[in-house]
Simulated assay, not measured.
Amino acid sequence: MEKAREFLEKYTTGEAADEVSRLSLPPHRPLDESSFYECFGGRGVRLDLLHSDFITCSFRVPPRLLGGDGNLTMGAISTLVDLLGAAVAYQGDDSWNVSADMSISYISPAKLDDELEILARCLGRRGGYSGTHVLIRNKITGAVVAEGRHSLFDARSNL
């Protein structure tokens, strides 16, 4: 717990806190432009196949998404599940999906330059809710890196 406190204090006090407070990120307009979050976490994802119920993608693990242990971070994996789950649930210009729930199993590590294949599929839709499944595996070894389920709600469905 002490390490967590030291880490957080670094960004909430002193010079680092001043730098963080001066950050100015423009508001994100969904569907019009990428957010910092999408650009940082999703940059490098290549669409291989797009179908009405599933998407297949490829992704080579870049240095920017590695943790101190040399593995793809859990945050980067959750970003991929979030982005690709939302992409496969997207239904057109009038939908505005927000994450309602996400569950991810982290199964095996992915290292720098590992080529990953990602399959995102829509499990179903009911009312304003969509359920998706995202499977991330190492393209060479076939080992499952992570498996995620992502539930989304179309916030405009009740407007």
Rank of each mutant, 00 (worst) to 15 (best):
I55G: 02
N97Q: 15
C57H: 08
L84T: 10
M102G: 01
G75Y: 11
A76R: 06
K111W: 15
I77E: 05
A89S: 10
D94I: 05
S105L: 06
G70A: 02
W96C: 11
L83K: 00
Y106F: 15
N71K: 09
F59D: 01
G92F: 07
R60F: 09
A76S: 13
S95F: 11
S105E: 14
M74P: 09
P62N: 03
S105P: 04
L84M: 14
S105F: 04
A110V: 05
P109T: 04
S105W: 14
P63C: 06
A100F: 09
S105G: 11
T73Y: 01
L112F: 13
A110R: 03
S58K: 06
L66N: 01
A100L: 07
S78F: 08
L65N: 02
G68Q: 11
M74S: 15
V88T: 03
R64M: 04
S108D: 02
V61C: 01
A89M: 10
Q91N: 08
L83A: 06
G67K: 04
I77T: 11
V81D: 08
L72Q: 01
Y106G: 03
S78G: 14
A87Q: 09
A100C: 07
A76L: 05
Q91G: 15
V98M: 15
L83E: 05
V88I: 12
R64A: 10
F59L: 01
A89Q: 05
S108R: 05
Y106S: 10
A86E: 05
V61L: 06
A100S: 15
S103V: 15
I55S: 00
I55Q: 01
A110K: 00
V81S: 02
M102E: 08
V98W: 13
Y90N: 07
L72K: 03
G67Q: 06
L66Y: 02
C57L: 09
T56C: 07
R60E: 12
I107G: 01
L80E: 02
D101I: 10
D69C: 02
S58L: 09
W96A: 11
M74F: 14
R60N: 03
G75C: 11
P63V: 13
N71S: 09
L80V: 03
L84Q: 05
S58W: 08
G75P: 03
A89H: 05
A87E: 03
N97Y: 15
D94R: 11
Q91I: 12
M102F: 05
N71I: 08
D82K: 00
S99M: 09
G75E: 11
Q91T: 12
T79L: 08
I107E: 10
